[in-house]
Design a protein around this nucleic acid. Structure first.
Lengths: 348, 348
DNA sequence: TTGAAAGCGGTACCAT
DNA sequence: ATGGTACCGCTTTCAA
């Protein structure tokens, strides 16, 4: 069994109360006693049992983080940010991957909420109504999602999209595609809305295409529709989808950015590693994670504060090789390609 | 405050003891009472407080998972496997990213061990001696690392390397490079050792190159040494390093697989998405995670069992476009390239 | 079959 | 400045 407070008390010749004080309210105990207790505790390798402490203080020192899919590199980045900030504040982190399943989200919130001081929901897929039923139970902070009266950390989507569209129109593009992500994703709805607003303002025509899984395969699946849409540039829901598009375009002999410009969202590390490197709107990832933890800690420290603190973090267009001047002639519509096996197309 | 056992007891008109029994030892309570209690509990939304329960049972229902870097897509995959299996068994998972730092690993093990029933250490960077001091404290399972008398889940590296080298020698390669990863990585030591053993047996010459960070940048950094080594094929410590090599080769005008074949390890999803797609040795990832949880649960269920259960999982060579026949003339040594900005090289 | 009481490892309050 | 005691939520004897 582990070392308990009683072991320390006995070894130091004091009561359990004094041990607690020496460790958590040092000012209240005689310096000499304090030092002796602390030394004894250290030498015995004593660490207070957080569960037991939590039982009485109501504080567990834990927080929970839910993400839809660790397979999308966007989320591990957010997780890293959360971890880093949480550990600084001496919090431990429960992580759960919900597999893009809103039912799983709800169940996990319920299960975790009793073991944590607060929860961070990153890009939750559940509906607003479902989300509302969870509020009040446990302190909640949303990441990448906005809901009235719930604290949240979100990126400046509108500005990011403005940067993206300005870049494309400056290159001469006038007819731009947007490949939509999952309908259950608030981020997708925001990006689509921003795309409409911004392209209207810029005098460009926006063609909305499908609604695909937020993965490489989604992009591969949407690529032919993009070609058929006669656009000269396409903005993908996220980088994975953009990479799927790139892959399929290469397989069909469509040159990027010669025939078609491709732009992603997120700036996952991968975006800079591929060929051609992907132009993308960088979202704050680690930073979102850190900010969310900050917001949560703030909330815990002083619960009666504004229940709807909200932080919006800047986005940044990363111009790389996948976008270029609009072709003089509209996008080509090549003959149906030999169907290349996904992800294994040979060299051009 | 959340619903407690007393609330349920009062509402159902029984004692707390009966509530416990009705929920955890149904056989011991009168069917009628049992049903009434369970209905009341359900209608009140009662979930037993796991921390309180753990205090007395000694079981927390939690487990901890440490990984070196979530930024390497290999680890999120393992995490997904752990999560999936853990949730099936009704366990919650503490996750910690140690940032490739062995000191952080040790601290986190200490911090988490009191809150969990067992810990999974994935690719720990600490030394064998450090690792040994941690054993016995809390049930431990190693993933991707072997240590005497500690249960572990590891891939069949030797066989994986054999597949890789056989593939290359069959293509005519006789001089093969191995770009080493971090020295603190057991996996790296194993791969290097396997590479030596296997290539000797296959009559190929092995050239060991550097020791780089297990990341894209590590590969970029090693690429020029690889070219200078006069090999016709190179095996990278992992896929990220392989991608870094590819990127720099492309920038220097070296054709893959025309001039040089490149082979990775891991089979991260990315490997199939790039161009040319990366030939790689697929390691079990989700599967390792699941197996590790299984091993841990087994250990918890019956602690006196063999303390050193060990599972070795098969690996699988994925042949893709980055490997091809050895060139007739040894690898070219192109003139020093214009130094292309990392990760942003334009189209060939 | 059920209830009362003790105690898991801490902390907080009230004495002294 | 320190010790005693009650209690956090739950499980587990022990009696009835």
């Amino acid at each position: 069994m582990a070392v308990t407070i009683k072991d320390v008390a006995r070894a130091a010749g004091v009561s359990a109360s004094t041990v607690t004080r020496a460790l958590t309210m040092p000012a209240l105990v005689h310096p000499e006693t304090r030092d002796r207790v602390r030394r004894t505790a250290a030498s015995l390798g004593y660490h207070p049992n957080r569960a037991a402490r939590g039982l009485i203080t109501g504080r567990t020192g834990n927080l929970g983080l839910l993400v839809p899919d660790l397979g999308n590199p966007f989320f591990p980045s957010v997780v890293k940010g959360v971890q880093a900030r949480a550990h600084e504040a001496d919090y431990a982190v429960f992580l759960a991957d919900t597999d893009e399943d809103s039912a799983a989200e709800i169940g996990l919130v319920r299960k975790l909420s009793q073991q944590v001081d607060g929860l961070l929901l990153c890009s939750p897929r559940m509906t607003d109504d479902e989300l509302r039923t969870l509020v009040g139970d446990t302190p909640l902070v949303l990441v990448n999602r906005r809901l009235a009266r719930v604290p949240s950390v979100i990126p400046e989507f509108l500005d990011g999209m403005r940067q993206a569209v300005s870049h494309l129109t400056a290159l001469g593009h006038r007819r731009i595609g947007y490949v939509a992500g999952p309908r259950s994703s608030w981020a997708n709805r925001e990006r689509a809305r921003s795309a409409r607003t911004v392209s209207a303002a810029a005098g460009a025509e926006l063609v909305e295409i499908g609604s695909v899984a937020p993965q490489f395969e989604g992009g591969v699946a949407a690529a032919d529709q993009v070609l058929a849409a006669g656009v000269t540039a396409v903005i993908a829901y996220n980088d994975l989808v953009a990479l799927g598009l790139l892959n399929r375009f290469t397989a069909r002999g469509v040159s990027v950015p010669g025939d078609l410009s491709v732009l992603g969202f997120d700036d996952i590390p991968l975006a800079a590693m591929v060929h051609p490197a992907l132009t993308t709107v960088a979202l704050p990832k680690e930073q979102s994670g850190r900010a969310a933890v900050d917001l949560l800690l703030q909330l815990l420290a002083d619960p009666d504060r504004s229940p709807a603190a909200r932080r919006e973090l800047p986005t940044q267009l990363m111009v790389r090789a996948s976008t270029g001047p609009a072709p003089v002639h509209p996008a080509p519509k090549p003959a149906p390609a030999e169907s290349a096996p996904l992800g294994s197309a040979g060299p051009p």
